[in-house]
């Protein structure tokens, strides 16, 4: 049985993901198309919210991915700190812009949803505010990567920033909750059946979430490949100088 860590070899990683990527992309596209069409056209309007409720199919999955992308970066950073596999650090780097875009999508769809529902584009509600803070964390993380020339130094520094940032992001979440009770409804999904959204909305939503997860994985694979190749190119240039 081959060890899981074999995939931390850049060559092996690229070979494997090259094989997976077409399947992942097609699957992601299919689930997204099915989920979105089902959700947009074949579910009833909500009795209070009307058709605006359907933005849930973009809002909830992107919000989930915004948080999960950061978690993935945290795990990848820990792997880099402990095992020093370059691919891990590069994967964390690759996931950051995707996560940031997910955060923006969640914020934008939330604003569009909030306008008819709460009568305002933006409120300093705990959930909205903590997503804005999360977005700032993404910005800082990407800016730090971009600012440092030496790749290993950048990987080390951003990994520590990701660790410390995670702790402070959690603290902010709690602090923001304390600071303002908010308008936002409770979670749309939970294991507790009673609190869930109705079944008609639930299944297409699951499809959309699966689609976003697959899309995220495909994008991170693709971007990590790009990072690996860029890194290898810099290494080859340096190698030429060595002679």
């Amino acid at each position: 049985m081959a060890s899981f860590w074999e995939y931390a070899n850049p060559k092996k990683f690229i070979q494997t993901t090259d094989k997976l990527l077409p399947w992942l992309s097609v699957l992601a596209a299919l689930t997204l198309v099915v989920g979105l069409i089902w959700g947009f056209f074949f579910t009833p309007d909500d009795f209070r919210q009307g058709s605006t409720v359907k933005i849930i199919y973009l809002h909830v999955p992107s919000a989930l991915m915004a948080i999960n992308a950061w978690l993935m970066m945290l795990v990848a950073s820990l792997v880099w700190i402990v095992r020093r596999h370059h691919v891990s650090a590069l994967a964390a780097r690759a996931a950051a812009p995707v996560g940031a875009v997910m955060t923006v999508i969640a914020l934008a769809t939330g604003a569009i949803w909030g306008q008819p529902m709460w009568g305002t584009w933006w409120a300093w509600d705990p959930r909205l505010t903590s997503f804005l803070i999360l977005f700032l964390f993404y910005l800082g993380y990407m800016a730090l990567w971009a600012a440092i020339e030496n790749d290993d130094t950048a990987a080390d520094l951003t990994a520590v920033l990701c660790l410390v940032g995670s702790v402070f992001a959690l603290l902010s979440r709690y602090a923001v909750n304390f600071w303002n009770q908010g308008l936002h409804q409770g979670a749309s999904l939970s294991l507790d059946k009673e609190k869930n959204v109705a079944d008609v909305f639930y299944f297409p939503l699951l499809f959309c979430i699966a689609g976003f997860v697959l899309l995220f994985i495909a994008l991170v694979f693709l971007r990590t490949q790009t990072e690996i190749r860029a890194r290898r190119m810099r290494a080859l240039l340096a190698r030429e100088r060595l002679g």
Partner: peptide
């Protein structure tokens, strides 16, 4: 001298 091409984390120097 430039290190061998095929060490594990390799090709990153």
């Amino acid at each position: 001298k430039a290190p061998a091409h095929d060490d594990f984390d390799g090709s990153f120097l």
